[in-house]
Write a protein that binds this DNA or RNA. Structure first.
Lengths: 216, 216
DNA sequence: ACCAACAAGATTGTCAACAATTTTGTTTCG
DNA sequence: CGAAACAAAATTGTTGACAATCTTGTTGGT
């Protein structure tokens, strides 16, 4: 175990630990339910335990880490039912964002969405699921952004972070991309048509199908 | 300044500080934008600074407190635009909960809602705005609870906590209770009729009118 | 009088040591 | 052989002190 970076360069130690730990969890480098011992993490990141501790507290309220009194922290495992519940909330909130984006987005932003749609179509045609998954994520992020609804954006980012592991499993499923593609195109079309109700409906259809896929 | 309680009785110091501070903020005992100095709070609650610190980090991600690097913490002030944005999110999430509650709630739980509706009607008739406001809050809490949607419940509780100050202002407005009452009764009726779509629509109507009232 | 540089005070960020708690392994008794 | 009691190890919770940073008040020059 060697120290990864130098927190002495003015970079706040707690922030450093927070960023590193979050990345490690989101990248899936930590096994599900893996124990997170404060001392080990402190040495690994080259900071003190107090900083790791502060980071863990923050990650707990982000829903990425589970902490039990006097028993330590572990990577939180999201069950399938939880993933479904989270996606239901996404349905409500992303529906709101899509409706607002249909009204608020500039013409340039709509063009950007159209470009993303074309890129997704190409990725599916070329059979590149990884690229497609990234574009998928990007489309959702852009729609959130264009809505201008900061509160919803914050909530959604937190929710999405909890779904990383399930997202992986979903993306690699054969035939999933094709269905997902048409749903995304429908979302983009409705927003471009500046039709809030249709945009919200399209998002609901899409995430409804995600829920079905999650349930296997 | 005297110590308020005994953290030595096994009650974890950080939890103690967290609960105390949260209550103080929610009760409005801390003036808006008031500075929260770690040392003062530590002495006031009879715990050490580290515990206060941990509590502040948690309250920050709950959106109740604002922390700036090396500059300290203060009670977060929610602007009117933010309150509107938060209520838009409530609209989406409580709509989801109402729809699920219409399907999932037991007959006993529906009876409980009916009782609350009757109590609200009486409170308005008797001209007791404080009682009405409490019942109002209770109805929303029950509907959330009956939905069984744990994730949405968590998000909504966080959002509601940020609105305390605005809620006060809203409740005392003359004529507001009458309009609010009929909207609540419509929500209860739709859920009792086990009609998810109507329930969701009723919630949206209600919170839409809250948004209008917020904007003055 | 005004502005910049500087110094003093206040406050947060970090650290290492200590105490409390839980878990695990061992022993002893039935 | 199994179960309860006990002891040892690991880990988290807490504490007080120290360092870094920001704010404020003061001073000196123009």
């Amino acid at each position: 175990m060697q120290k990864e970076a130098r927190p002495g360069t003015g970079e706040q130690a707690k922030q450093h630990a927070l960023v590193q730990l979050r990345q490690a969890i989101l990248r899936g480098e930590m096994a599900p339910a893996q124990r997170l011992v404060e001392n080990e993490l402190a040495e690994q990141f080259g900071v003190t335990r107090a900083s790791v501790r502060a980071a863990l507290i923050e990650l707990e309220s982000e829903g990425l880490v589970e902490r039990i009194r006097n028993r330590g922290s572990r990577v939180r495992v999201v069950t399938v039912e939880e993933a479904v519940a989270i996606t239901e909330c996404r349905m409500a909130l992303e529906g709101l964002c899509a409706a607002k984006a249909a009204v608020e987005a500039s013409d340039e932003q709509l063009a950007e969405l159209a470009d993303l749609g074309a890129a997704m179509t190409k990725a599916v045609a070329d059979g590149e699921p990884v690229t497609y998954s990234e574009l998928n994520h990007e489309v959702h992020a852009r729609i959130r952004e264009f809505s201008g609804q900061q509160v919803a954006v914050g909530l959604l980012e937190r929710l999405n972070a909890q779904l990383v592991r399930h997202r992986f499993q979903l993306a690699l499923r054969p035939g999933r991309a094709q269905q997902s593609l048409s749903e995304h195109l429908a979302m983009i079309e409705a927003i471009s048509a500046r039709d809030p109700q249709a945009a919200e409906a399209a998002v609901r259809v899409h995430l409804g199908s995600v829920i079905d896929a999650l349930r296997d």
